[in-house]
Amino acid sequence: MTWYLGDLIPYMPLLLQGLWISIYISVLSFVFGSVLGLFAYLAKASRWRVLRGISGAYIEVVRNVPLLVVLYLIYFGLTQFGVNLDPLWSTLIALTINNGAYVAEILRAGFEAVPKGLREAAHALGMNSAQTFRYAILVPGIRNVFPAMTNQFILLFLFSSVASVIALPELTNQLLRVNSETLRTFEVFTVGALLYYVVSSVLAIGSRLGEKRLFRW
């Protein structure tokens, strides 16, 4: 076996296009999933038992069932109801549902970790609940949540590779295609791994720098 990257060069635009789709679906489902997660978190912290129950069940189911099974349920399973979603929509929905449950847990853990004393101090200064949340809880809570959220985004980006199995032409799917066309297996997957690695490392370093800049206190 000899190492030769030359065969791959014509395919680089294709791979970068795949990478772009990977990033694109990750960003979209992260945004949608975060909104969903925020509502799930609020529902879980609410006074109504039914809401708490629904939210709790959602979070537990998603956290204990593989993403791939959820994706198959949406892509293949829903056809039984005559709902035929294309790969892109199926992926976006599956990743959003998945991300929402994890975001809900991140928010819960992060805001629970804000010291009780801050709330008490705010009350002692005569602030009402809204003021207390706004001035005493929100920013420390965001600080607690920030690293876990960026980490969650990186995980989501890595897991978006799952979409390749339903033929969404993101990076992993393109790698499989290039592999079958060039038969340069070793080179193809090495290049693929490096592309993923570079993006996730840039995100990790960016997150750490962002944390330092945003939260200097």
């Binding site: 890595l158 897991f159 590779s161 799952v162 390749s164 992993t172 790698l175 499989l176 592999n179 297996t185 997957f189 090495t190 693929g192 791994a193 993923y196 690695y197 996730s200 490392s201 990790a204």
Partner: peptide, 13 residues
């Protein structure tokens, strides 16, 4: 820093 899927494709192919 890389997806499990890529690791699996690598170990298989």
């Amino acid at each position: 820093g890389i997806p499990l899927l890529i690791i699996l494709l690598f170990t298989y192919f």
